[in-house]
Design a protein around this nucleic acid. Structure first.
Lengths: 219, 219
DNA sequence: GCTCATGTCTGTACACTGTAGATCTATACG
DNA sequence: CGTATAGATCTACAGTGTACAGACATGAGC
């Protein structure tokens, strides 16, 4: 609506990208817009609403990714997943916020509709579709949040030292997997492999829907 | 180590459970311990470190859940998942924090070791085990975070109103699924169904490892 | 006994935070 | 002209994390 509001959201996004989410204060945003802090309130309501608005903007970027009418369902799903992860990488502060509110904005529901469509095209029974969409986006957002937040990061200890904290023999599986655990992880490849596994999960659910033989999709 | 430190973590946990994570300020914790805020610093280092310590405590609760030597691998996995979700319900503030740091504490690695063991017992090839553990816990933590944070909550609009925001026909999949979308969701059942699907995912990966026929596990 | 180091705690202070409330200003409409 | 309205402002409050300097008790070595 108001141009001022858009300007404020822009400023908030810019600050978050440059200096992190903690640097997004009403004062900092106001200064960037060239205005006093209290002048923001008629436009965004509160700080929480400002953050919501910023997330809404990002979801807008995501919506086009699930389009692509011509592509098969699994390609569309992949595009969506990669778009979401890329978004988390470009805006590391955003991933955490996505868990905090339902994606209720127009852009959010549009994106969800794209995922629903992909799953329906895959042949997933209708009653499983909303659940499966939540499963998939929970994982994708979680992956992005883990990368952005540091859960997938190295931590303060390398893997060997981590195991050393506990007495010998308490971590049998770690010992058996040591070879794989000491290798650095290729997170792009891991994400791709995860998506492949999830594709299998979707396929299995689709098969369940048509008990015998191959039915064709729509009419 | 120090008893004071434990006392401080207890106070932080108590405040977080009673009044939310935002109520956990150095001043509030200090008051509860009966001390001035600055007295906390020699024990916990900083506020961030205090929160880390609190999360570490919770992971301790989680470790026993993946034990149970006699149970089959999928039962152990279910126990772990339910324990994690339960933890997120009892301490809604914690879920968000879990994405922020690698689970590097002794309790954390012990829990992970339990999951590794379950996956190995399932017959998952060794090189897939660490990745699969991350996939599963990303989903489980994400589910807990979504419940706790409000992503799965109703939001400000009911489903029908949400669809009404956009012009007719822009949400074809929503229209087709309207019947299922308007029903309230049973989150316990949803979680259970998700776990069942993920069990299938693990099984598929295990089958991949033994190309033909059934090999028996190990000796 | 003494001194000295160490670890814990206190009080004060600084630079921030979100936002309530009252007030000013510029524009638009009659 | 007067007046309504929306936007911006200034001031103020109660809260935040924590840097810094100093106080106190404890125990070790002489």
């Amino acid at each position: 609506m108001s141009a001022r509001r858009e300007e404020i959201l822009d400023a908030g996004l810019a600050i978050a990208d440059e200096k992190g989410l903690n640097a997004v204060s009403m004062r900092a945003v106001a200064e960037r817009v060239g205005v006093t802090p209290m002048a923001l309130y008629p436009h965004v309501g509160s700080k929480a609403a400002l953050l919501d608005g910023m997330v809404g903007r990002l979801l807008g970027e995501l919506a086009p990714a699930v389009g692509g009418e011509g592509l098969p369902w699994d390609e569309r799903m992949r595009h969506f997943a990669h778009a979401a992860r890329g978004l988390g990488r470009r805006h590391p502060w955003a991933a955490a916020l996505l868990f905090a509110r339902p994606s209720v904005t127009p852009d959010g529901v549009r994106t969800v509709d794209g995922v629903y469509t992909a799953l329906l095209d895959a042949g997933v029974p209708e009653r499983h579709v909303p659940r499966l969409e939540r499963l998939l986006s929970t994982f994708v957002i979680g992956y992005a949040a883990s990368e952005a937040g540091g859960r997938f990061g190295p931590g303060d200890l390398d893997p060997r030292a981590r195991r050393g904290q506990l007495p010998e023999g308490t971590l049998p599986a770690h010992a058996r997997l040591a070879r794989h655990l000491d290798e650095p992880v290729d997170w792009d490849a891991e994400f791709e492999a995860d998506l492949e596994d999830l594709r299998g999960l979707v396929r299995a659910l689709a098969e369940d829907g048509r008990p015998k033989g191959h039915g064709e999709a729509d009419g």
